[in-house]
Computed example of a mutant assay.
Amino acid sequence: MTAPRLLGAAAALALSAMALSACTGTPETTPDPTTSSAPTQVAAEPTASAKPTPTADADPTCETLITADVVASYESIGVTSRESPMYIGSTEVKGGLLCMWANYDQPASDSGQIYGWAKLTKDAAKDAQDELVDEGWVLEETDGGVYVTESPDTALVTDDDGYGMTYLFTDGQVTVADTKQGLLLIEWPKG
């Protein structure tokens, strides 16, 4: 390094040191301890505000439709959601929500998770079930509701029990997931 550049660098370093010491100020002297026995008030540490819990009359979002733990797990590995209208067969369910969770920063693949929810009247539910069964889906009535699952012959992804994409019709609503086991992650409506 040449002398003028060395001197310039030394001057810049000295100015930086002076600026830093000017920002920090001079140390204050510590006051003498008192003999007072009065307790000292200490401000409580601020706590992180929790997200408000959605109410049953609120509209779901992709982040509130499934459990907070699942959302946090997805987000920790770069998986985010995209929202779209919900369809059952050829019919769009007005006010319905369909969420596709995937890593959209990666090249396209067939990996992703689907979760959906909608309010649905009894008549609309029956029409939807009939259309799906006519298309080869399998209907299964249980005490917990009516499950309609895509045919195992055409399912691309299945859970441990062999169920692919599945709708669960219960009183006044329908949920959907890419597998029957995936329905367990849906927690809507909150209550």
Rank of each mutant, 00 (worst) to 15 (best):
G112E: 05
W101L: 05
Q129A: 14
W137I: 07
L168E: 06
T149V: 09
L98F: 08
Y115V: 10
A124E: 15
G136W: 06
V133W: 07
L120C: 11
L120W: 03
D143V: 01
Q106V: 14
E131Y: 02
Y115Q: 13
M165C: 08
D110R: 13
Y147I: 00
K119R: 15
V157S: 09
Q106N: 15
E135V: 13
K119H: 11
D130T: 13
D110H: 11
E140D: 13
S151C: 06
V146I: 14
T91D: 15
V148S: 12
T166C: 01
D105F: 10
D160C: 00
D127M: 12
S111N: 14
K94C: 06
V157I: 14
S111L: 15
L120P: 07
D160W: 01
D153C: 07
G145F: 00
E150P: 09
G162K: 00
M100C: 14
S109C: 04
A118R: 07
G116P: 11
G144T: 13
D127C: 05
T149D: 08
D110F: 12
L139N: 15
L132N: 08
K122Y: 06
I114C: 12
G136F: 06
T121W: 10
D161H: 00
Q106Y: 14
A108Y: 09
W101H: 05
